[in-house]
Amino acid sequence: MQVVFTKGPGTSYDIAVHRGTGASLAPRNGPGGHPYLPHDLVHLLVEQVAGIELGVFGQLAAGDNGLFWPADPAERAKAARHRKSKGAKRSDRAKKDMTRSEELAGIAVPVWEVRRGFAKTLPAYVTRNEIPPVVEQIVGRLDDYADRWHALPVGESLTVTW
């Protein structure tokens, strides 16, 4: 699966997913947030490094639509019916993986910001004794992509393989 992040003005971005399983997905706007690390890029890297199989991107790779809609209107209508009949059901494993992705992202980004000099201290909810060892690897991957993203001109893209 290829995930394409296209830089917009400020901290905005679009995200497109090209995958081999499931309906083709329409691109969508990302939630923005950080000038060096788009929110969805952080989650993709966290899930890759931590081996989170059923986070946002693992579910997309497996054919689920996640926060996206199919590009084809007929597929979109089918997906909407499926969501209504399925309700908010998610497997316990998927819920745990999504929670783990959020937790690790919530720790890794502040650790990265302190190391890069964007913040002076860690937030109160992150104590040095409670930083999981995998966070070091995640911070390294954030570093791999942060400067590339920041230097990217508006309208240009960064593609990451899942």
Rank of each mutant, 00 (worst) to 15 (best):
M1D: 10
M1Q: 09
M1T: 12
V3R: 02
V3E: 02
V4W: 00
F5Q: 02
F5E: 00
T6D: 01
P9A: 15
P9G: 14
P9T: 14
S12Y: 10
D14W: 04
I15V: 15
I15R: 08
A16P: 01
R19V: 02
G22T: 00
L25A: 05
A26Y: 02
G30M: 06
P31G: 13
G33P: 03
H34F: 07
H34A: 10
L37Q: 03
P38L: 06
P38Y: 04
D40W: 05
L41W: 03
H43Y: 06
L44G: 08
L44T: 08
E47C: 04
E47K: 09
Q48P: 06
V49F: 02
V49W: 01
A50K: 00
G51C: 00
G51M: 03
L54W: 10
Q59R: 10
A61M: 09
A62P: 04
G63H: 03
D64T: 01
L67M: 13
L67K: 15
F68K: 04
F68P: 05
P70Y: 07
A71Y: 07
A74I: 07
A74R: 14
E75R: 11
E75K: 13
A77V: 06
A77M: 07
K78D: 12
H82E: 13
S85K: 09
G87H: 10
A88Q: 05
A88E: 05
K89P: 03
K89H: 14
S91C: 04
D92C: 01
D92I: 00
A94T: 05
K95C: 00
K96L: 08
K96Q: 09
K96G: 05
L104D: 02
L104P: 03
V109T: 10
P110V: 02
W112M: 08
V114H: 15
R115G: 12
R116P: 13
K120A: 15
L122Y: 05
P123F: 07
A124Y: 06
Y125K: 09
V126N: 13
V126C: 15
V126G: 14
R128C: 10
E130M: 13
E130T: 12
E130K: 14
E130F: 11
I131P: 14
P132G: 08
V135N: 14
V135Q: 12
E136K: 15
E136D: 15
Q137M: 04
I138N: 00
I138F: 00
I138C: 01
G140W: 03
G140I: 01
D143H: 12
Y145E: 12
Y145P: 11
W149V: 09
H150C: 13
A151Q: 14
L152Q: 10
V154P: 12
G155H: 13
E156D: 15
L158Y: 00
T161G: 12
